[in-house]
Design a protein around this nucleic acid. Structure first.
Lengths: 214, 214
DNA sequence: AAGTGCTTGATTGCACATTCACAAACATTT
DNA sequence: AAATGTTTGTGAATGTGCAATCAAGCACTT
C-alpha cells in the first residue's frame, strides 16, 4: 500500500466518516458533499475535505464524493475488509457489557476470547465467547495470533496483566483501568478513563458557569 | 473564584493529577516533584509544571509541591469538595456496568437516578439506584437539579432522549452512543465512542506495521 | 555564611491542527 | 456553447499544544 503520512487527528476521524458512509450507502445515496457530511459527523467541512485530500483526489468538483467509492476506499484503509479478532481481559461488569456490545456489525471487529481468574466462569462460554483462565493467556493469544486486547481487570492487576500481554505479543491495548500502564514503545495504549472524563465534564461546566456569572 | 482561562488539554489532565495526589497522600507523602509525578501519570514534567503554573505559584523551587496543598487546591478546582449527582439514561448492559462502577471513591461522583423504558426494571432499585420510567425524566431531573447525564440508550433513541434531557435542563452529556448528538451550544457533549476508538487503535497498528516493513 | 545541587516557572521555538477564502473544475441550465 | 451555480482541493493565516532550555529561588551541606 501507499506510504502516506496521515495526521493523528485525521486518523481518529476516519472511523467516524466510515460509519456514516455505511448509513448513507444503506439509504441508497450515491453522492455526498463535504457540507452534508459535516452536519452528520459534526466536523468542519473544510477539515473533511482536507482529511480526504491526504488520500488523493477522491471527489469531483461541482459534484461531491461518490459514496460507494469512498466506502470501498475507507474499507481498505481501515482494514475493514478483514475481520479483526481481539481479546477481552477481565470479565467483570464492564467486561460482560463489552461482550454483548456488537462491534462486528459496523466495524468488523470481534471479541474472540476472554480471560478471567474467576473459576465460576472460566471454561464456559459467555455471549458466544469462550472464557479462559488467566494462566492460558500467553498460550491462547499467541495461538490465535491476537495483537489487540481490551483490558478490564481491577486496577491492582492492571500492570501485571499488561506485562503478560506484552509478553504474549499484544501490540495494542484498550485500557479501561485508571492506571497509566507502562509498556514498550511499540505497544500502543489507548486509555478510556470513565471517571476522568466525567470529572473533566464537570470541570468544564463549572468553569463555564463562572464565566457566565462574571 | 478566579477567572483563569485554562487550555482544554490542561483541564483534561487535572483529574489525572488529582487521582495520583490522593494516592500519594494516603501513602503519607508530604512533597512531590514534577519529575516524580511525571513518571506516574506519564505526562512530560515540563508540561506538569506549566499546567500547575496556570493556577499561580503552587510549588517551591528546590523543594517541589506540597501534596496536601495541591490536594486541597485541586479539590476546589475540580469541585470535589461537594458530591456531584449524575443521571444514567438507559439501563442496558453498559448502563448496568456503570451502575456498579464506583465513581464515588476517588471522584465524589454518584449516579443518583437511572431511567429506562423496560417495565421489568423501572420502579425497582438496582445497585442502590432507583430506576424510573422514561416518562418521569423531566420531572425527576428538574426535581433533583441534575445537570449531568450519562447516555447509554440505543442509537435509535439517542437524539430524541437528548432533546428531552436538554429540555429538562441538563448541561453536560457523556454520550456512549455512536450518534453525534445535536444540542444547544451551552450543552457540553463528551463522546465516548468505543467502536471508533478500537478501530483507531487497529488503524494505527496496521499503519505502523507498514512503516516497519518499508 | 558561602557554595552546591535541585526544582520551579517562564520564555521561546517548533510541530501539528484548524479554519478561511478562493481558484480550478465540473455539472447544469439556458 | 456560453453562462451560471456548485463543490472540491489547497495556499495561507491563525490557533493550540508540546518540548527544550534556562534563570531564579530554595534547601542542604560544609
Amino acid at each position: 500500500m501507499e506510504k502516506i503520512k496521515i495526521p493523528k487527528a485525521t486518523a481518529k476521524r476516519l472511523p467516524l466518516y466510515y460509519r456514516y458512509l455505511i448509513i448513507l450507502n444503506e439509504e441508497g445515496k450515491d453522492k455526498v458533499s463535504s457540507t452534508e457530511l459535516s452536519e452528520a459527523v459534526q466536523v468542519d467541512s473544510a477539515s473533511i475535505r482536507r482529511d480526504f485530500s491526504y488520500f488523493g483526489a477522491l471527489g469531483k468538483r461541482g459534484y461531491g464524493y461518490d459514496v460507494k467509492n469512498l466506502l470501498t476506499f475507507f474499507k481498505k484503509i481501515l482494514n475493514q475488509d478483514t475481520l479483526t479478532n481481539v481479546a477481552l481481559i477481565g470479565v467483570g461488569n464492564l467486561g460482560r457489557a463489552l461482550l454483548n456490545y456488537n462491534f462486528k456489525r459496523s466495524n468488523n471487529i470481534r471479541i474472540s476470547c476472554a480471560f478471567d481468574i474467576n473459576k465460576e466462569i472460566t471454561g464456559r462460554i459467555l455471549s458466544g465467547v469462550p472464557v479462559y483462565d488467566m494462566s492460558d493467556l500467553k498460550q491462547q493469544l499467541s495461538d490465535q495470533q491476537i495483537s489487540i486486547a481490551i483490558l478490564t481487570v481491577p486496577s491492582t492487576a492492571a500492570q501485571k496483566t499488561t506485562d503478560e500481554m506484552v509478553d504474549a505479543g499484544v501490540k495494542g491495548i484498550m485500557n479501561f483501568t485508571p492506571i497509566r500502564l507502562s509498556a514498550p514503545a511499540d505497544v500502543r495504549v489507548q486509555n478510556v478513563d470513565l471517571a476522568t472524563e466525567l470529572q473533566t465534564l464537570i470541570y468544564f461546566l463549572n468553569s463555564e458557569k463562572q464565566n457566565n456569572e462574571n
